[in-house]
Write a protein that binds this DNA or RNA. Structure first.
Lengths: 339, 339
DNA sequence: CTGAAAGCGCTTACAG
DNA sequence: CTGAAAGCGCTTACAG
């Protein structure tokens, strides 16, 4: 009414019952006379009453909030996962609080807050965030319900693709076309933050080559940023190499499309002069004619959120690691090497 | 220690002071003996004490959390804005809670929660979310500190580009090249949720045409989705038209790139057969050689967050509307019509 | 500089 | 089915 928030006291007073009854009535608990409930609801509506968030949290111990720690909210993969997570959570009545966790410092700060996060969220999603031992220890100690996305973390529920196998399959596609010198683009975060997902893809790349009797050439490992710009820059670096590769395996589609854009600008023909393969299944990969290893990012977000909700509801469920299938989509950006 | 969270009581007991002093010491308030503070900090560290989130909120009235309501977290623009917002907020010690607000129903649900949001966040960012009258009323009534991004909302601080002028400039570029039949792609959300930003761009499109003595042809207004897929579909629809346009103004870069991808697949030459211009300045627009109206999405997010923090700190500041400049970048996707 | 006390606004056994 | 009361864990005037 008159400018200030209505409290449960106001509702109680105006409906002539106790605050305990108001609480029960409004939260749909049993043991409230239908008549009483109707009266309380009417008054609450009229006053525009909604419970004080912090007061409910404090009294009930539940926050109806889930946190998600992820790197780079402006990257396609993260955005997709986030959209999936958000849909499932909001359907279930949960709010979503986001935490940037790309740099080592951010991750540390995040883990250091574990104790207070425990009282801030009911559960936490970790996207491409493989905590260091000390970070994991804090997180586990705080007993926050956790689900890891994109990486298998010991003693934590997780949902991820098999990056090694996916990378092997990608590189084998290039090998089968006849390529022998295959570059690797986008390994910067392997060195910067030891991203396990990327490290696994790198391992798959090496394994596939070795399996074909080829020794991975360190000179072909380009540690450019995993981004459009990084891909463009990496493409240049790879082209400058004496005896440049005839194919490039890019660790993300954004990197791959950056490389293709650079090729277009330079008049380098894809795939005739150089084949390019990406990783993600980005919306735009089809428009680019990009061959890519498709992962269902949005679905991953949804499933992870469902897993988290289930494990919030049933905290004793044993830890499980789920693997999500991927799918190689061959398009025009890959072909046999020239001559 | 022994499995359970340490409370301020534990710290008080073990450091031999009152909880009031612990609170002051840990929150860096003045009027605490340096010696006392040191002791308290030591004990708190040893116990891994961190304040209970809800208890602080309830007692202090501050949540150190900001909310952002935005449509489509997996769209480039939203992701960029979000990344900018996140950076500024986390630097300032604020958390970020996200609310999806794309459908009319989501927006309604969101506005209906105003009273509880007031106790959940210290301020709120509204991205491309021009509330209906009743929604705005609730929001204002709840006295949440608001900043609108992308659209000017009456009686709310805002930060936006000038969509009308930007669209006029885009279309004039095509007119100057000699185009007379210019299609418009991506107007679906104008009809679905009356997106004011898109409506403004549409208005600019019409104004530029009329100004050149051309009557906008409703048949050239394609209400496809503002997305890669939508662009591809819209491209087909436009091409199927008898006497199809020689140029297409796409309301987002994703739409434009979807259209370009379709052109590539069909063997339609851009810009020789048809010119395409986008809107956004998407990372990949350069790789595509796409002419586009560039808006500094990340910067917009950062500035809006700064604005919000300032107005949380100084709630009495008068309402202001800020306009952010845009920049037309001409690339290869636009050229003179073939005739 | 420090402590005792009130208060923030709910939820939840516990009685009845 | 309902109410009185304790308790959730802090912060913040108010005294001293």
């Amino acid at each position: 009414m008159s400018g200030h928030r209505a409290t449960i006291q106001d509702v109680a007073r105006q409906s002539g019952v106790s605050v305990a009854t108001v609480s029960r009535a409004l939260r749909g608990k049993a043991n409230v006379a239908e008549e009483t409930r109707a009266k309380v609801v009417t008054v609450a509506d009229r006053l525009g009453y909604q419970p004080h968030t912090a007061a409910s949290w404090l009294a009930s111990g539940k926050t109806m909030t889930v946190g998600v720690a992820a790197p780079y909210f402006d990257v396609w993969y993260t955005g997709r996962v986030l959209a999936g997570v958000e849909r499932v959570l909001s359907d279930a009545g949960y709010d979503l609080t986001v935490y940037a966790a790309e740099t080592a410092e951010q991750r540390d700060r995040f883990a250091a807050r574990s104790a207070s996060l425990q009282t801030r969220v009911d559960g936490m999603l970790l996207v491409d965030f493989s905590p260091e031992e000390s970070q994991l220890a804090r997180l586990l100690e705080s007993r926050i319900t956790l689900v890891a996305i994109g990486e298998h973390v010991d003693s934590v529920n997780s949902l991820a693709i098999d990056n090694v196998t996916a990378a092997i399959e990608s590189v084998r596609h290039l090998l089968a076309l006849g390529h022998r010198r295959i570059g690797l683009l986008g390994t910067q975060d392997i060195h910067l933050i030891e991203s396990p997902a990327l490290t696994a893809r790198q391992a798959g790349y090496s394994a596939a080559l070795r399996d074909a009797g080829i020794d991975p050439d360190p000179a072909l490992d380009i540690d450019c940023e995993l981004s459009v710009e990084g891909g463009a820059e990496g493409f240049d670096r790879l082209l400058d190499l004496p005896g440049h590769p005839t194919a490039m395996f890019c660790l993300s589609d954004e990197t791959a499309m950056g490389a293709m854009g650079r090729a277009r600008a330079l008049g380098v023909s894809v795939p005739n002069d150089v084949s390019i393969i990406g990783f993600d299944g980005h919306d735009l990969s089809e428009s680019f004619g990009l061959t890519t290893m498709c992962q269902p990012a949005r679905r991953i977000g949804e499933e992870a959120a469902e897993l988290l909700l289930a494990s919030i509801a049933e905290p004793t469920t044993p830890v499980a690691h789920h693997t999500v299938p991927v799918d190689l989509i061959v398009r025009e950006s890959t072909g046999p090497p020239a001559h």
